[in-house]
């Protein structure tokens, strides 16, 4: 079997991603009223919404960049930063909050040296906050890559994170 170098694969992947996005825009009839849905899909395809992807959407939909960027920056769901290999979601629903979720979050911020919504420079972790992940009996809960860690101790986070490279 022929060997592909990674960068070639990346180029092909990016082309495919834009083709998929193009299809999404067409499926949504290029209607400005469907912008939010299209951005959702675009984020699913690329993992985040860098300026290049936003500009592509602007050109295809004939929308001003300031408008698309305005929508992207308004909703906290959208991110213009690439995601890390692992996504940490700290639950701050009522139960987790009263049982120390905030302390867990602060400890994680300190440990990773990033804020909520950001990704570590080595792209290992992204940090997010969720409002109740439905694991109130396990509070305070943290989900990493959608796997729930129960009764997280803010002093023992290093052990938990070391499982993820």
């Amino acid at each position: 079997m022929a060997q592909h170098c990674d960068c070639q694969t990346a180029v092909i992947d990016e082309q495919k991603a834009y083709q998929t996005l193009m299809q999404v825009i067409e499926d949504y009839d290029r209607k400005p009223s469907n912008l939010i849905q299209i951005l959702h899909m675009a984020q699913a395809i690329f993992g985040y919404l860098p300026e290049k992807v936003q500009r592509f959407i602007c050109e295809q939909m004939e929308l001003p960049f300031s408008e698309v960027s305005g929508v992207v920056s308004f909703y906290s769901y959208f991110t213009t930063q690439p995601k890390g290999r692992h996504t940490i979601q700290v639950c701050l629903g009522t139960a987790c909050y009263v049982r120390g979720g905030k302390k867990v979050l602060d400890a994680l911020k300190g440990l990773l040296e990033i804020d909520v919504g950001e990704t570590t420079p080595d792209r290992r972790f992204s940090l997010e906050v969720k409002r109740c992940i439905g694991a109130c009996g396990l509070a305070p809960a943290v989900a990493i890559n959608n796997v729930v860690h129960k009764r997280v101790n803010p002093n023992k986070l290093q052990d938990m994170l070391s499982q993820y490279e």
Partner: peptide, 10 residues
Amino acid sequence: GVGALNAQNR
């Protein structure tokens, strides 16, 4: 119809 300015963030 230019759209050079819009509200950003929240």
